[in-house]
Design a protein around this nucleic acid. Sequence first.
DNA 1: CGCAATATTGATTAGTATCAACAGAAGTGG
DNA 2: CCACTTCTGTTGATACTAATCAATATTGCG
Lengths: 212, 212
Amino acid sequence: MPVVDLPDLQNVFVQSRPFTAGSYIYRAGAAADAYYFVRSGVVKTCQTNSRGDELVTGFHYPSELVGCSQMDGVYADSGVVLETATVCALPDNHQGELYKLSLNNAFLHLLAERETQTSLHQRNLSQTRADARLAGWLVQTGRRLQKLGWCQQRIPTPMSRTDLANYLGMTIESLSRVTGRFEAAGWINATRAHLEVLNPSAVAAAGAHMLL
Amino acid sequence: MPVVDLPDLQNVFVQSRPFTAGSYIYRAGAAADAYYFVRSGVVKTCQTNSRGDELVTGFHYPSELVGCSQMDGVYADSGVVLETATVCALPDNHQGELYKLSLNNAFLHLLAERETQTSLHQRNLSQTRADARLAGWLVQTGRRLQKLGWCQQRIPTPMSRTDLANYLGMTIESLSRVTGRFEAAGWINATRAHLEVLNPSAVAAAGAHMLL
DNA sequence: CGCAATATTGATTAGTATCAACAGAAGTGG
DNA sequence: CCACTTCTGTTGATACTAATCAATATTGCG
């Protein structure tokens, strides 16, 4: 599993011990005292509303930031580890650490890329067909993995089907049916741990709305 | 129309002349050379993919930032004025302007609140029923307006129905039917320029998923 | 006033949520 | 090592919602 570092900025980040699957990096509602840079592993961000419905807001790979969603000084979502992760904490101590980052702009660029990812997910969610949303997710996730130097045809799915369905705005039954249809068409090979794209052009066509 | 300023930071922002409705503050694909702080008016952010489908990614009121969505140094969306707006530009000249902002943290807090708004919109989009999405938007927009000291029952709609439907992930026909249903139930009064909430508790119940 | 753009209303179809039953994997304890 | 339980995911039948296609109405503007 590759490890990614933020160039020139490791020294202002605080390296943490590895987090094991299922553990929380930070919790919604707690005082927001740090941003976290994911170096390895996969992290999901999620929030629960007052009715108790969970919403999965994102899956985060190495080189990405989590803990950026804050309201009135408290985290608006939780960061949960899906696959053993190492992260760097950037303490938001209002005393100059952030300044060093901002100065060199790498931090702001990470935030800006995060925004872009989010708006792409918005675009995906605004698709009405479940097939289009799964295909769009495969396309977009493949691109993210490729940027990390991984295989873009082999999408790891450390998250549960429930989490993925929630993230894609559909029920688990619908997700199961869509993956079933894609498998029957020979487009993908779905296992618990991976979604392997066998016919990239067919998937790309079905997720064409994600090509900016 | 109230004007909002970013405390202690006006001096690093560059005040622009007012933008009239329909004009672009910045364009998707152009070199991202600034962030923009909305002081007055309403701004929509949108992007068009290679198929030509437009996606409205947000509506932005005073005190909010736009131009944050960047990828590889270019804007990933466009900022279009819906209602005459004045904005402050923060040139991203890599020479220390941003540093002043980050130092006092107000800028990062604006970005964090933006993230939170976005995740709330994600939650709204993940609702399957169109009624829930309109109600959720009314709830959330009301709260944003209230923070600005405006009336949270009277939601101005300077955007077209097409834009609003697009933003809410439904067709204009569906939006029209939902507003029609809400009006028939006596929950709202819909005109072209405003959506007035007559029965706040009913709307809040229908948009209960938005209560964090 | 008349044209063009935008919005509403209607009928039909397609897709997904829901409810329910079943299958498989993972973990537990004898 | 194997029954047993539990959790997760799959498959099936039905109802309901929203997209689509089409027509009409309204608004805005020259």
